[in-house]
Amino acid sequence: MSLLDVTNLCKSFGGVRAVNDVNFSLEKGEMLALIGPNGAGKTTCFNMLNGQLKADRGSVSFQGQELLGMNPRDIWRLGIGRTFQITATFASMTVRENVQMALISHHRKVFSLWNRATNSYAQEANSLLQQVGMEHQADRACGVLAYGDLKRLELAIALAHGPQLLLMDEPTAGMAPQERITLMELVASIAKSSNVSVLFTEHDMDVVFAHSDRLMVLNRGEIIATGTADEIRSNEVVKEVYLGGGSTFDTGEKEKTSA
């Protein structure tokens, strides 16, 4: 049994099949990229996995537990962390408090009315921040962070409850090329060291080809190809509907020389 098994997942909006019979599985510690043109159904797919959207049909099984029909909060408690395309953090709190918030929730203390929140789980928060290299900024207000740092903070929040699976929706959107690579290297190293699986969508082909163990290409709600970076790059169908002539991202040869 894989960590995550998706079978026959379907979703229609007003008669249009947004996701049509999608099947895939994800192994422990694997980094799987989901790519495809806008409107191909990536976000729909993602939102069904994390419980924000109800599926029409199919099954999503996480360690044997059926996720469809559960709400996002309970899915999170099973050990699935998330990051968002546009960072979602608590702007009026310090960096450490952002992580503490996730820890407080994990320990089910959100209805506590008396103790000081800033004193709760501070050590754990610090070590999470250390993992993503944010420990020096722990006391800064989250609202003044640079965008790249926000992304790293979001990663620390997502890791707070020790998840086995990370769902990352366009993790590097809006970042500079160098930052993208640094962030994904960080994600990859954490994934390897803590044996966390990562499922991510991404538009930056450089990132995708460099940091995924396996890729899936979605088009018009269906998976049209699955395979390694090289297999996908040379797939004619994928080239036609998505990648184009390859003039707007690193082609394979260049990347090999630079890597």
């Binding site: 994390n50 996002p72 909060r73 309970d74 999170w76 408690r77 998330r82 968002f84 979602a88 953090t89 608590f90 702007a91 009026s92 709190m93 408090e97 503490q100 918030m101 996730a102 407080i104 929730s105 994990h106 959100v110 929140a117 929040i157 707070a160 409850h161």
Partner: peptide, 17 residues
């Protein structure tokens, strides 16, 4: 804090349970 968190980002509080 949880209340303020919800005010800052509804998306995120739901995503941390």
């Amino acid at each position: 804090y949880a209340l303020r968190a919800g005010r800052d980002s509804q998306l995120r509080v739901e995503a941390i349970g």
